[in-house]
Amino acid sequence: MKNLNTYFKSAFTVDNVIFGFDESDLKILLIKRQEEPYNNHWGLPGYFVLPDEDLNTAARRVLKQLAGIDNVFLEQVKSFGAVDRHPVGRVITVAYYSLVKIADFNPTPDNDVAKEVRWFSVSDISALDLAFDHEEMINVCFQTLKRQVRIRPVGFELLPPKFTLTELQHLYEAILETDLDKRNFRKKILSMNLLIDLEEMQEGVAHRPAKLYKFDSDKYEEFLQDGFSFEVKESKRKEPKPSLSN
C-alpha cells in the first residue's frame, strides 16, 4: 500500500455563484482579484477551505469576506476537480449557488483577495475572460437554476410584496433566457392558485394600470416541498434571447 501522505497533497476551495435579479435582468456577482494567479481578473467569490471548517461553513465565510454578503441560502451544486484547473497545484473546488434580490444587498469586500465587487449581466459573462474555470461553473449553475425554476416556485423574495403578472413573467424570462407567450404564461400561473388577487391596481404609472398580486405563502411553501411542472410556450413573435451557453 502506498504511503498515505501521497493522497494529502490537494487543496480544497469553495466558490459562490450568486445570481441576482433587479426587476428586469438576471445578473451574477463577481469580484476583481488582487492576488496571483489571475490578478486583476474578474472571478467568483471563492477561496480556500480552512483545515478546521466544513464546506458549508467555508462557503458562507468566504462569501461574507470577499463580497460582504451574508444570510443567504447556499445550495451545493457540483465539485470541479480537473487536474490543471489551478496553475499552482491540485485544487478541488465545490460550487455553491443562490438567487437573491439585488436591492437587498450592498456588496463590499473585506479582505486582501478582492479589491472590487460588482454585479454583471449574465449575458456579458463570456466577454470577461474570467479567472480559472469560473465561466464553466457559472454555466453549470445557470443550467441548474433553469431546471429548478421549472419544478420549484421562484419570486417570493425577488419581487416586491405587491407585483403584476408582467413583473413575474419578466423574472421567469430572465432566468429561462427566452420570451414567453403572455397568454399561456398567465393561464399557467393563475391555474396553480399560487397567487392572491389583491383587487388593487397600479398607481402612478404612465401606462394602463395593471392588477396587483401577492404570493399565497401557504401554497408557496407547499410547492417548495412537493414541486410542480412549469412548462410554458415561448413567444412566437420574438427571437429567443442569446444563451449564456452559446
Score class of each variant (00 low, 15 high):
3 N>D: 14
165 L>Y: 02
112 D>C: 07
121 S>Y: 08
173 E>Y: 00
233 K>S: 15
102 I>V: 14
166 T>Q: 15
40 N>A: 06
176 L>A: 01
167 E>M: 14
47 Y>N: 12
108 T>F: 11
227 G>K: 03
60 R>C: 11
52 D>A: 11
143 Q>E: 13
132 F>K: 00
240 P>F: 06
2 K>S: 15
13 T>W: 02
192 M>N: 09
27 K>E: 03
5 N>Q: 08
2 K>G: 09
122 V>E: 00
233 K>H: 13
106 N>E: 07
217 S>L: 14
69 I>W: 01
84 D>V: 04
182 K>D: 10
218 D>G: 05
83 V>K: 13
65 Q>I: 10
226 D>E: 15
240 P>V: 06
51 P>R: 07
107 P>R: 01
47 Y>Q: 04
165 L>G: 02
111 N>W: 03
6 T>S: 14
103 A>V: 06
94 V>L: 12
179 D>S: 12
25 D>R: 04
191 S>W: 05
21 F>W: 11
87 P>N: 04
168 L>P: 01
172 Y>L: 04
144 T>L: 08
75 E>H: 09
36 E>H: 12
175 I>W: 01
148 Q>T: 10
72 V>E: 00
150 R>N: 05
80 F>Q: 09
139 N>R: 15
172 Y>T: 05
157 E>F: 12
207 H>C: 14
231 E>N: 15
47 Y>W: 14
15 D>P: 04
210 A>I: 08
240 P>K: 10
208 R>H: 15
217 S>R: 12
150 R>T: 08
14 V>G: 02
192 M>G: 06
87 P>Q: 03
153 P>M: 07
215 F>A: 03
150 R>A: 07
54 D>Y: 10
51 P>A: 04
204 G>E: 11
53 E>V: 09
47 Y>R: 03
146 K>N: 05
